[in-house]
């Protein structure tokens, strides 16, 4: 394994740079544009610039830039993991890549059935994007998932997928699915259809945002508390909030890491359930078989 060609190593370095450089650029942009303060402020995403458009100005904000950063980094990670694939004597990174693909395929086929196995790239993309977006707070960047616009976009995408698979048996069948079990319940069914993307977006956004708000509030409270308790120390020592060192990091294990990854998992899980649940599989396969016979 030692005699890797020079080109292989150079490509590897390029891919690793592709993972790391966007994040560093994001941190630089953040430190350049962030107004000076004591670090305790709860604001939405910072707006970088506006592009004038006929109906409404197109706002380019922190969350858009950060989600692009995540996309490029994940793309670099994928390229790095799949670089130099072999059939025998495989490397560690190929082991990891194969493990990820196998796990996703298993998850998709056990939750959605064999018909939807082609969904697994979409599901793993969703998982990676959502998970890494939430983990971006660990580097001090604004998490795109705590912006309702980003998560709302994903939820609308999932809603389009659900509707597409409901339409597979024709528009008549789609209309009929609202009148179940009785036609009287149609308004209720329509409301619950609209509530699906809304609740998906709000769940993800609310969890991540509440975590970051609570973290900021705790950091603020600890700063005040250390002023109260350790304010008697002479000179500069009295001004440094000592209690703020370390303690918020313990809480961020739950609020940033666990909560973010759990929400990514739940978003992917709900996507699978709604798409496969809305699809009228019995009727579809019956019609398909009839077509094949004729």
């Amino acid at each position: 394994m030692k005699n890797k060609s020079r080109r292989f190593v150079l490509t590897d370095i390029l891919y690793i740079a592709m993972m790391i450089v966007p994040v560093i650029i994001g941190i630089v942009i953040k430190t350049m544009t962030r107004p000076v303060g004591d670090g305790v402020s709860i604001t939405g995403a910072q707006v970088y610039f506006k592009i004038p458009m006929p109906i409404q100005d197109l706002i380019i904000s922190e969350s858009q830039i950060n989600s692009l950063i995540v996309m490029i980094s994940v793309f670099g990670l994928c390229l790095y993991l799949t670089h130099g694939l072999k059939t025998r004597n495989i490397s560690k990174r190929q082991h990891l890549a194969e493990w990820i693909i196998e796990k996703t395929d298993n998850m998709v086929s056990s939750n959605m059935g064999e018909f939807f196995i082609s969904f697994s790239p979409f599901i793993i993309a969703m998982l990676a994007l959502s998970g890494f977006s939430s983990l971006l707070t660990l580097l001090g960047l604004y998490a795109p998932t705590s912006d309702l616009n980003i998560v709302g976009g994903w939820a609308i995408l999932v809603f389009i997928l659900i509707t597409y698979y409901k339409f597979k048996c024709g528009p008549l069948q789609y209309m009929k699915s609202f009148a179940e079990p009785v036609a009287l319940l149609a308004p209720m069914n329509i409301i619950s259809e609209i509530a699906t993307p809304v609740s998906m977006a709000f769940r993800h956004y609310g969890n991540v945002l509440s975590g970051s708000v609570i973290s900021v509030l705790i950091a603020y409270a600890l700063g005040n508390l250390s002023n109260l308790l350790l304010g008697f120390l002479p000179g500069v020592l009295g001004d440094i909030p000592f209690l703020r060192i370390g303690i918020p990091a313990v809480l961020s294990i739950y609020f940033d890491v666990f909560s973010g990854l759990l929400q990514a998992y739940i978003f992917a899980m709900l996507t699978m359930m709604y798409v496969s649940g809305g699809f009228p599989s019995d009727l579809y396969f019956k019609r398909k078989n009839r077509k094949i016979k004729n």
Binding site: R203, G206, L209, S210, L262, Y265, I266
Partner: peptide, 23 residues
């Protein structure tokens, strides 16, 4: 975990409203 996340939704609606009301 799945069920907990779904049960949490109503609480999160309230949280979103509270955050909007405060900020």
């Amino acid at each position: 975990l799945m069920g907990c996340a779904i049960a949490e939704t109503t609480g999160l609606y309230a949280l979103v409203i509270a955050i909007l009301l405060i900020f």
